[in-house]
Design a protein around this nucleic acid. Sequence first.
DNA 1: TTGTAAGCGTTATCAG
DNA 2: CTGATAACGCTTACAA
Lengths: 335, 335
Amino acid sequence: MAVTIKDVARKANVSISTVSRVINDSKPVSDEIRQRVLKVIEELGYTPNPVARSLVMKKSQLIGVIVPNISNYFIGEMLNGVEEIGKMYNYDILLCNSYGELEQELKYLSLLKSKQVEGIIFMTWNLKKEHKEFLEKIDIPVVMINRNTSDINIPSVCIDHFGAAYEMTNYLINKGHKKIALIRTGIGNDAFGVDQYKGYTKALKEHNIEIDESLIKNGDFKLEKAYDSVVEMIKNNNLPTAIFATSDYMAIGAMNALIDNGFKVPDDVSVVGFNDIKLASMYRPKLTTIKQPIYDIGAVAIRIIIKKIKGEEEDKTLFVLPHELIERDSCRSLV
Amino acid sequence: MAVTIKDVARKANVSISTVSRVINDSKPVSDEIRQRVLKVIEELGYTPNPVARSLVMKKSQLIGVIVPNISNYFIGEMLNGVEEIGKMYNYDILLCNSYGELEQELKYLSLLKSKQVEGIIFMTWNLKKEHKEFLEKIDIPVVMINRNTSDINIPSVCIDHFGAAYEMTNYLINKGHKKIALIRTGIGNDAFGVDQYKGYTKALKEHNIEIDESLIKNGDFKLEKAYDSVVEMIKNNNLPTAIFATSDYMAIGAMNALIDNGFKVPDDVSVVGFNDIKLASMYRPKLTTIKQPIYDIGAVAIRIIIKKIKGEEEDKTLFVLPHELIERDSCRSLV
DNA sequence: TTGTAAGCGTTATCAG
DNA sequence: CTGATAACGCTTACAA
């Protein structure tokens, strides 16, 4: 059996309260006794039982994280940020993988609550009504990642998707592209797909380029659908000079479709992405893309949680981090 | 305040033990009372406090996982397996990211123990003496991933690296390659790099191909070093007809070096990898590689832990899962 | 079948 | 400054 506070107290000839005091520095203890207790603790190799501690303090030092898929670079890197900052503040991460399924997500949300986690970082592809209902009455801090949560009172950390898409589209236009396809994601209001779309159309309009609906495709963050969309464009003889995919995976899918059909990137068609996952610089040609500060997104998310736990209320609901356009080799200049 | 077992007992007009019995099915309870209690539980929305439960049961329902880096496909996918099976058995995952640093790993190992986790899945790039000392005296189940643990008494789940490398080398030879470079990893005894090396040399010897040390490079799982190794080969005019990299990332690094220097894969040089990470089929040309059952590795690892927790001793120490050679487009036949 | 009461290892309150 | 002692919410002998 592990050694408990009692063992220490007995061996040091003091009461357990005294031991508790020295391990917590909570109340003054005479130096002599403190030393004695410390020595016994050392000898016995005593470590306080965090479970017992949690029970009385009603704190678990646990933060729950729900993600749709761990083996995804964006999510993994965000998790790195969460984990590192969490550990700095002595919080552990309880990991839940929802596979993006509503039912799982709801289940985990209540599971985490029942596990007494002190906060939840919740990442989902689609923020549904059911989520919102739950989130609105939950009494522990929750923060979301890259969702538009302005209608519910949940903080969210993200980048300026509108601005980023606007910037990227302008970049393309400045390179002489006029026929620019958009493979986008997140049609829902909670997602930033709509903001990206607005950024794209705004840039186009400002340059008097007409919006061609046949060049706007819906994707799902993954390669396959983007691949198929491009194959379709090829079949329809409706290839643009540039493709803007709002996720790097989709951009890769687009490039693969092009390459597999004998086109060259960027010589025949330019392709740009969004996120700057590791892969973006590993693929050939290296992908021009929008860099999201992924690690920082995770770090900021958990910082918000910790602040809320400490009772420091933040009134902001959207935490917007800076992005950056990373110019690499997948876009060709037409001018 | 959350509702407790007492509240339920009071409202249902029974003792707390009775409530405990119905929620645990531990002892017979008359049907009438059971219904009554269940109803109250429902009404009050009661969920047992797992912290209190852990305290008395001395079980946390927590399994600690230490990995060197979350944003890595292999690790993420393994984690998917761990998480999914863990949840099936009602275990939660406490995630620790060590960045592969010895000190962090040691810290987490004891942290997890003090957190009363019931088992630990420990993944590291290098299994050092310090780890072994710790692991030898720890009294909770630990399992490792892809390490050769035959000298300590810790189970490890892996594939047959010797066989896989042998198979791949033979594949290359059968395609007519004779000048085959090896970019390998894990020189230590705990790692399977040595086994892979043996598989490679065995195949070569069996075909009377002399081993050319100038074609054997040490890598570190990452792209950069492999990239540099290949650049060096190019500079030295010592390019083989095929490169076997023992990680897909390194294979990509090798291909990038080739492509960036004007060579074509596989037309000029063939490249094959190891692991079959997602990227392997996303890159162009698609990478021929050895597929490790990554998800299953995680799943098996946690199953072993759970079995050990239940006291079902396993005497095996190496759990070898099947691998598969996946033939794609990065290798050309010379015959 | 049900209830009483003794823990589990801490922290916190209140006397001394 | 120090020590009893009552919680925290739950499980589990032991009694009834």
